[in-house]
Nucleic acid binder design. Structure first.
Length: 643
RNA sequence: GGGCGGCUAGUUCAGCGGACAGAACGUUUGGUUCCGGACCAAAAGGUCGGGGGUUCAAAUCCCUCGCCGCCCGCCA
């Protein structure tokens, strides 16, 4: 849905060398690719991508369920949960609480009984079960660590098996009326990350931008563009088509709002003529509108690509008027019991679904409305995709509910339709952002400022860099862009979309806080260590890249914690995709960075005490690198090899 | 007026039925002969908006009140 809600993004712009497997392409063959597995359960390159933690969890669930059944306890609620940070187990269960009354014994005693009934020997990845008071704690074994390292050796680590299902993510879909402003930026950023998450989760994803090229706003725009003289307009804020044309739109809107009666009347007649022309399928009218729409859209795309947010398809609303599907939808609706004709306008009564607001689908002059066309649009999506996800502003909640129920009445399976609502981004002082009124901060300005500030940061830090790797001017450019834009994206994608955001320059461009650079730095560190290892002994680096790794060599709490964190990644991807909550991946990267930094502090890699430890730690660093690179990739944030 | 969403440390946010509510920024203190200090360690800081309720267990579920936002167009 488009209009004002903007929506989705696509990322993948410049090929960031450090992020393998970007764009869904098979990762380039690197040191980790295609080598025969050496330990534990061999995982050939062709095998299904593993989901370490998920696998362990389902194993534990089965084992616990079996134990409870053996003891004649109910198995409907296993109480499986992730234990608090200071508990070393990978999973825990609080079933004992629930069983206590039935067993007639205190929870700790029941926990002991259940623990004894679980035989770890028959459960893959389960080393042992212990109790801690009323809780059961499940610990992983060496094979789990070994398989995790093996799995994460693959640069595509975190990508789940192909599900054989397709999904379309519609996002951004901002009306082509002018430059993208920050108030709309949440849509492409959240939308792109959502599409990425689905792609990682094994869906075949297409990203769509639904272009409103048939509404009143566009008719006004077209009329204004053809009517006003450029000499009477202010200078454009940028040398870009969207900034150029928005001047006409603003001038036209102003005239309609504040012009004298005669002027407004004449203008309205023009606008109505354009709307009628579109409705009747007049080719000349389409051409006039298309010129304005395509020109503005080209400018908007340029901005979105900086994020990067790219689309597989720009689907125009007029398409569903021209192919007759909108008319057919209207006819089908008219035949329904829920359809009523009031004051000449056809409406749909959705009160049976608890929606008191009637849905008007044909105006009294017989023309269709946005929603009518969107119904045809969604049926078109349903025919082509298994899942249709829409990222849309919360101001469209009611309209979306109506759309969903109308689609259901039309006989569609609305289970296919999912939406992700996000709240507004406001300016300090509560002012909203509007393209028409020209209030707000342009996304181009925000990104420019972000890159400029990041560049300053890079330059001031350049002097006290310890690592001696000769960064040149091109690197400074690259880093400023990766860090600056990454910070903006991360700041937005890391928050739950339902929370309102007030835009503040200082906060949006704070590189300290829990920001992209903090996580990007971890990636650069991993790359630094691995590069250093390669410069050294060739045999050793090869060993690190592919040879035997003895999981016993990873015995410190920090190493074990890092392995456990790496193992969680596929599960995080899966949950983020299923629940359409990309911010979870951001939360994960934060926790991952902390875990990695603790490892880094306590465990020397290149100067490890013995060769086995060094080899194992190098493998761990390589695994960490792939994990953090891909987590950032899901978020659409670049993973720099140096910064 | 009705519907929906938000309310967690000074600030920005995680957590959304279970083990003492977590992190970052800011504040205070400390850390570089050693793989990247955009880092790390420690301290201080919280009636999880108020009040009821359900539960062995509530920030998390229910009710209610308050404040903020969004929506209730033959606009999109």
């Amino acid at each position: 849905m488009g209009f004002d809600a903007a929506g989705r993004t696509g990322e993948r712009t410049e090929p960031v060398p450090s992020v393998p497997g970007r764009n869904g392409e098979p990762a380039r063959s690197g040191p980790a690719g295609g080598r025969p597995a050496r330990f534990g359960n061999p995982l050939s390159a062709a095998a299904e991508p593993p989901r370490m933690f998920r696998q362990f969890r389902s194993n534990v669930e089965a084992a616990l369920e079996g134990a409870l059944a053996d003891l004649d306890y109910p198995t409907d609620d296993l109480g499986i949960e992730e234990p608090p940070g200071d508990v070393d187990a990978a999973l825990a269960s609080s079933v004992a609480f629930r069983l206590a009354s039935e067993a007639g014994a205190p929870p700790p005693q029941v926990a002991g009984e259940v623990a004894d009934a679980v035989d770890p020997a028959g459960v893959e990845y389960l080393a042992r079960v212990e109790t801690s008071g009323p809780y059961l704690n499940f610990f992983t074994d060496d094979a789990y660590a070994a398989d995790t390292l093996e799995a994460a050796r693959d640069e595509r680590y975190g990508r789940l098996p192909d599900r054989g299902e397709s999904a379309v993510v519609e996002h951004t879909s901002a009306n082509p009326t002018g430059p993208v402003h920050v108030g709309r930026a949440r849509n492409p950023i959240v939308g792109d990350a959502t599409a990425n998450a689905l792609e990682y989760a094994g869906y075949d994803v297409d990203r769509h931008y639904y272009v409103n090229d048939a509404g009143r706003q566009i008719a006004v725009f077209t009329w204004a563009y053809e009517t006003f003289d450029e000499a009477d307009l202010p200078e454009p804020e940028r040398d870009k088509p969207d900034y150029d044309l928005v001047r006409y739109y603003r001038a036209g809107s102003e005239l309609l709002e504040e012009g004298d009666e005669r002027e407004v009347e004449a203008a309205e007649a023009e606008v109505q003529a354009i709307l009628q022309g579109l409705e009747e399928g007049d080719e000349a009218t389409y051409d006039r509108v298309e010129e304005v729409v395509d020109t503005v859209l080209a400018g908007m795309r340029e901005t979105l690509e900086r994020l990067p947010a790219e689309f597989d398809e720009f689907v125009k609303e007029t398409r569903f008027m021209r192919d007759g599907s909108t008319d057919r939808v209207a006819e089908r609706l008219q035949a329904m019991d829920e359809a009523t004709l009031e004051e000449g306008a056809w409406q749909l009564d959705l009160s049976e679904f608890g929606i008191e607001k009637k849905l008007v689908f044909l105006r009294s002059d017989g023309t269709s409305l946005y929603t009518t066309r969107d119904l045809a649009h969604h049926e078109w999506k349903f025919e082509r995709y298994d899942r249709a996800v829409t990222v849309i502003g919360e101001d469209h909640k009611l309209a979306f509910d109506q759309l969903r129920h109308a689609l259901g009445l039309l006989g569609n399976d609305t289970e296919q339709l999912e939406q992700l609502f996000y709240s507004w981004v406001n300016l300090p002082g509560g002012e909203g952002m509007s393209t028409r009124a020209g209030t707000g901060v342009d996304l181009d300005d925000l990104l420019d400022e972000a890159v400029a500030r990041a560049r300053e940061e890079v330059e001031t830090r350049m002097d006290d860099r310890i690592r001696d790797d000769d960064l040149g001017e091109a690197d400074v450019d690259r880093i400023a862009r990766q860090v600056g834009i990454g910070a903006v994206r991360y700041d937005i994608v890391s928050k739950q979309p339902t929370k309102a955001i007030t835009f503040e320059w200082e906060r949006a461009l704070d590189f300290e806080a829990q920001s992209a650079p903090y996580v990007q730095y971890v990636h650069a560190r991993c790359c630094g260590i691995l590069a250093e290892a390669e410069k050294g002994d060739a045999d050793e680096s090869q060993a690190a890249a592919g040879a035997e790794v003895d999981p016993d060599a990873l015995s410190t709490p920090e190493e074990r914690a890092l392995v456990a964190e790496i193992a969680r990644f596929p599960a995080v991807v899966e949950e983020a995709a299923e629940d359409l909550e990309p911010h979870r991946v951001a939360t994960y990267t934060r926790s991952f960075a902390e875990t990695f930094n603790a490892f880094y502090r306590e465990c020397p890699v290149l100067s490890a005490d013995d060769p086995d430890t060094r080899t194992a730690r190098l493998a761990l660093v390589a695994a960490a690198r792939h994990t953090v690179a891909n987590a950032l990739d899901v978020l659409g944030v670049a993973a720099p090899e140096s910064m």
